[in-house]
Simulated assay, not measured.
Amino acid sequence: MRVSSHQFHLNAISNIQYNTARFNEASVQLATNVRIAKPSDDPLGAVLLLNLDAELDSLSQYQSNIASIDFTLSQQEVKLTGIVNQIYSLQSLITTAADGSWGEEELKALGQEMSVIFPGIVDLLNGTDSEGKYYFSGSETNTKPFDLDAAGNYAYVGDDNVRNVAVTADSSVASNITGNELDPGANFLNAMKDYLVDINNPPATGVGNESRAMITELATFLGTITGGVTKIGGTIASLGSLADSNLDITAVTSNLRDDISSVDYPAAQIQMNEAMAAYESSMQVYASVSSLSLFSFI
């Protein structure tokens, strides 16, 4: 088969360009340690990298969610633990007041001390984060959960929505406890408010019956608060396990991504050397043949 000089030139230039491109590709890979710079370098590998990048982004978001939930639950736990301590103080004072031997002035003194403790409990139930968002008002984070109504009684004015946040691809955890779980219907707050009226204005017969009834209310309230502390503690413990699991998955995914995207240095070096050798060979053949003419054979 005859090959025209024009066709020879085209083939030679094509070979030179091809081997130049192979050499440049290998040298860039060796310099950057990036095997897939564009989808055409490895279409299947490029798709896998996109999927792995999306997975790593999701894992990063889950870790961020876990850290955020851990912090906000820890702050809520601090508030509830503070309430528990205040309950114990009230419990001691109310138990003392239940003794019928106490006189009016002594009962008023106990009442004054309780009147200092009680607003602290209300403040803790209405606790806020650094942005002024209320912890225990459900999704109504801009609304104070416990407030006095027009009749002067406490009412829960948040909602019962629990904010669930994704922490893995298949699971989410609650990031808050609602005030209605802690003091359903504001029963304790109203009972304590009324009891303070009694003990600060005690009848001659004392407040024994009222105190014993209040101790029962206090025990119920303590149960819901400690239940909240236990619930938060369990969630925080599970978050630590989930965070460790996400870190393990992230490490495996990152390693797989590196395996796909990183350059095989020996193979790239061989490709570069082969391309250089082929380039030089093509250039020599092209130069030799291009110098020939009919006069070379006369």
Results as ranks from 00 to 15, higher is better:
Phe188Val: 07
Asn161Ser: 14
Leu222Ser: 13
Gly185Asn: 08
Gly228Asn: 09
Pro119Ala: 07
Val173Cys: 00
Phe146Glu: 10
Phe136Asn: 03
Ser172Leu: 05
Glu210Met: 09
Thr128Gly: 06
Gly158Ala: 05
Asn153Val: 06
Glu210Gln: 11
Val197Cys: 03
Arg212Phe: 07
Pro119Val: 09
Pro184Arg: 01
Ala186Asn: 07
Phe221Leu: 03
Glu210Arg: 05
Gly152Phe: 02
Gly228Ile: 02
Lys144Val: 15
Glu131Trp: 00
Gly127Arg: 12
Lys231Arg: 12
Asn176Ala: 00
Met114Ile: 11
Ile117Cys: 08
Thr168His: 11
Asn180Trp: 06
Ile117Gly: 06
Leu189Ile: 04
Thr205Phe: 01
Leu124Cys: 10
Leu110Pro: 09
Thr168Pro: 13
Gly223Trp: 01
Leu189Asp: 09
Tyr195Leu: 07
Ala166Pro: 12
Glu210Trp: 06
Asn153Gly: 11
Thr143Leu: 03
Gly152Trp: 03
Lys231Glu: 08
Asp194Ile: 05
Ser130Asp: 15
Lys144Gln: 15
Val197Gly: 00
Thr235Trp: 04
Asp170Thr: 14
Pro119Phe: 01
Gly227His: 06
Leu218Phe: 07
Met192Leu: 03
Gly132Arg: 02
Asn180Cys: 09
Gln112His: 08
Gly185Glu: 06
Gly152Gln: 02
Phe188Lys: 06
Tyr195Thr: 08
Asp183Ile: 15
Ala174Leu: 13
Gly227Gln: 01
Asp159Ile: 04
Gly179Trp: 12
Thr141Ile: 14
Thr205Tyr: 05
Ser175Asp: 05
Ala213Ile: 10
Leu124Tyr: 07
Gly208Thr: 14
Gly208Gln: 15
Asn164Glu: 13
Ala150Thr: 14
Phe136Gln: 04
Thr224Arg: 01
Asp183Leu: 09
Gly132Ser: 10
Val157Cys: 00
Ala150Cys: 00
Thr205Lys: 07
Thr230Glu: 10
Gly127Thr: 14
Lys193Cys: 06
Ala213Gln: 10
Ile121Tyr: 10
Phe136Pro: 02
Gly223Ser: 08
Thr205Cys: 01
Phe188Glu: 09
Phe221Lys: 02
Asn200Cys: 08
Leu125Met: 14
Ala150Trp: 06
Pro119Gly: 07
Ile199Arg: 05
Asn164Thr: 12
Glu210Tyr: 06
Asn161Gln: 14
Ile225Met: 06
Ser139Pro: 13
Gly234Val: 04
Asp194His: 01
Phe221Cys: 08
Asn164Lys: 12
Phe188Asn: 12
Thr224His: 03
Asn180Leu: 07
Lys133Ser: 13
Val122Phe: 15
Val162Ala: 09
Asn126Thr: 05
Val162Lys: 11
Gly158Lys: 01
Thr178His: 09
Thr224Met: 03
Pro202Lys: 02
Thr235Ile: 13
Gly138Pro: 02
Asp160Trp: 00
Ala155Asn: 05
Leu124Phe: 04
Gly127Val: 10
Asp129Thr: 04
Asp159Leu: 08
Ser137Glu: 11
Ser115Ala: 13
Asn142Lys: 12
Val122Glu: 04
Met192Phe: 12
Ala151Arg: 03
Leu110Asn: 09
Asp129Cys: 06
Phe221Thr: 02
Glu181His: 12
Val122Gln: 11
Asn187Phe: 08
Lys144Thr: 15
Tyr156Arg: 00
Ser115Gly: 11
